[in-house]
Nucleic acid binder design. Structure first.
Lengths: 207, 207
DNA sequence: TAGATTGTTAATCGATTAACAATC
DNA sequence: TAGATTGTTAATCGATTAACAATC
């Protein structure tokens, strides 16, 4: 019943996890914040608090209807539609990304792929023709794309990000191991496996 | 000068970023917390506080010696050595991971690769022969490995994680879109691009 | 020394948890 | 109604920032 106060980013980042857990359950069934919390290793209070930023989706004494809550979360996250994405960088990682079924299944589709390597341009990746990155602005504009994926080496990532932003991209999934500078209002989500490895090894005592 | 109080995980996860920034600088040069903060978009106070959990590495009035601080961070994170890693799941993503130069460059090497697909077992990935996942415990034990990477579908990830843990793995980089349950003392770092996409689209108003 | 920046303490800010009235 | 669980407020916890004495 809130919707007034600013929603912390960390709250928004938990909603996809709730969505993921709900999709393992029967549409028509009921679930309590307690049960959902146990599935995710999160307190029931946190789940109720998180949801309350966006409204009241449950029933006292009963819990939440799985299908209904799922629909509401999809609306909040705006994943109740299909999103076309532009991919820049078609190396090993780019190939894996373009082919990954987990994105498509959730409505995220790579609809254009770019590289700056002349030996790759013109080749196909699935049904997609790899294009010269110079054509990115034109394509993003024509297709009205808002989501971009960066899978180029660290040294080229900022340049690609800047091009994306000036072309109209508003959300960037960045696989390059470098922090990006983008204007206010543009989202960046950093995929950083090396940070993961390097922080985990800190805890490996005695090896 | 502290080293008493418990270090928050979020602090440990920032150290790799400091390390990354430092490696773009001259070994022998000096840097202030102010400058390092500007490079990373972090306050200078936070950098000094983070470092103070582990000791005093700077000089008042001067700043930090790049090479020295870098060495200290490498010790703290235990990345002042080579780490052998076991990879399970050799699909597109697994291939990209095994071939990724960014891990090797920082001393993280995939030294054994496994899959449960009979058509893949025996094939090579670079110099590595893909082995039956049934042999994982034996290999992890023999090679004394502590770090594992999971690149299997969501449905198999927990099973793989459990096998890894019973085999002696203490740190898991998990690319499967599912939360893992592991015993206390085992580290998990979740790579979750879909969470990234789904949380970013929330902010895309009016598209 | 004079100037500058660290390392640390205290103040602030924000997120999580606890508790319970509301209500289904 | 009686029992249960939400939604929300207040209390707690933890992380970030500000400020400054220490000191190079």
């Amino acid at each position: 019943m809130a919707d007034r106060k600013k929603v912390p980013r960390i709250v928004v980042e938990r909603l996809p996890l709730y969505l993921r857990a709900l999709s393992t359950l029967e549409e028509g069934s009921l679930i309590t914040s307690q049960e959902l919390g146990e599935m995710l290793g999160i307190s029931s209070a946190q789940i109720r608090k998180d949801l309350s930023y966006f409204g009241g989706f449950g029933k006292q004494g009963t819990g939440y209807q799985v299908g209904f809550l799922r629909e509401k979360l999809r609306e909040i996250l705006r994943v109740d539609r299909e999103w076309g994405m532009v991919l820049v960088g078609v190396g090993d990682l780019g190939h894996a990304i373009a082919r990954y079924g987990g994105f498509k299944r959730e409505g995220f589709h790579v609809v254009a792929a770019f590289d700056d390597d002349p030996t790759k341009i013109g080749k196909k990746i699935g049904a997609l023709e790899i294009m010269d990155v110079a054509r990115l602005p034109e394509v993003v504009n024509r297709m009205g794309l808002r989501v971009g994926i960066i899978a180029v080496p660290a040294g080229n990532a900022q340049e690609v990000a800047t091009t994306m932003v000036t072309s109209g991209i508003k959300a960037i999934l960045n696989y390059a191991p470098v922090g990006l500078t983008v204007p206010e209002g543009v989202q960046v989500y950093q995929i950083d496996p090396l940070v993961g490895l390097q922080s985990m090894t800190h805890y490996l005592e005695g090896f």
